[in-house]
Nucleic acid binder design. Structure first.
Lengths: 172, 172
DNA sequence: TCGCACTACTTGCCAGCGCAAGCAGTCTCG
DNA sequence: CGAGACTGCTTGCGCTGGCAAGTAGTGCGA
């Protein structure tokens, strides 16, 4: 941590001579603040997770998805789809997790092309521990900073936008 | 675009057996939605910017900061600090921009160690054009999706959190 | 004035990410 | 059945990111 004091945040960096009149100070604050907050937050959370459990954010996400899945296993393509990662990335993250005996690759009974990632006992335990500390940290770093009523608005906005953004991504 | 349909978003991926009771559905929606939305949005915006102007998001940020600066020049370390990037990354992005004659490296008159990045005429023009289309896209993809009243809350939340997160990063 | 700590930048290196190409297995249709 | 299209995964590569080490210049105290 430390290093990267980062971003003046206050005054944005907009040239302004063009047709940007519509971008009020409020718009700039919202957008730049969003980018900035996300960057800092994920940096901190990722570093934390790394030192505490040797996991990346993506690694925990995959572990979590497997833990939440029916028989603690999922095909790699399903995992990639759920997590919003490329299949190639998932394949390599699973390499790492497999090397640590947190998951196992097994052939899919119904389709010899496919590979299932199975969570091991160790993997499930680590997923639980890591999620517990991770979510506690998110709570403290993000949710605890919200004023009454803000949580509902944030949930509404991003709950609405996330699927919409994903859809836009698949269609255009 | 297309590819990476990404994220089921709906049901999260929380193991739940542990002390996560405090994480209501609302919390999960807000947090996962935030991550998801950010990922999709920046992916789309970056791709757009790349095809339209051959710039990365970071490249535009640096260009924009220079354009907003006093005499269109800034020391690399100042640029890094403002943009929340490491100095090494800034150095390499400036390499690219310099190769395209959008900026020029010049020695700093007061300090022979330092290097100033000077925006060229071309660089300023590109910054203006690229920011115009970029911000229009942000407007359409993000702000136009907000209901009345939501913008103010989002601005308040992230305007408050961004500096706080940055501070936490420098101190711990 | 010399030495030593400090600063500003550059460069080598590694991790995370996606794309494209390649390979094996599946499915469909003649 | 067999050819060709398609799917699921793996792997090579290039890009963006940061950190650490190296270099050059600054500035302060003895």
């Amino acid at each position: 941590m430390s290093k990267l004091p980062t971003a003046t945040t206050s005054c944005p960096y907009i040239v302004g001579d063009d047709g940007l009149a519509a971008w009020s100070e409020t718009h700039a604050e919202a957008w730049i603040g969003l980018l900035e907050t996300h960057k800092q937050l994920t940096r901190a959370l990722d570093a934390e997770l790394e030192t505490a459990h040797g996991l990346s954010l993506s690694g925990l996400e995959l572990l979590g998805r497997l833990a939440a899945a029916d028989a603690h296993h999922l095909r790699l393509s399903a995992l990639a789809h759920e997590a919003g990662l490329s299949l190639s990335r998932v394949s390599r993250i699973i390499d790492l997790l497999e090397a640590r005996r947190l998951v196992e690759r097994r052939p899919c009974p119904n389709d010899a092309r496919a590979v299932e990632a199975h969570l091991t006992e160790n993997g499930l335990n680590l997923a639980r521990e890591a999620q517990a500390t991770h979510f506690a940290s998110v709570q403290q770093r993000f949710f605890d900073q919200l004023e009454p009523g803000e949580l509902e608005v944030v949930a509404a906005v991003f709950g609405r936008l996330a699927p919409r953004a994903a859809a836009a991504c698949t269609t255009d």
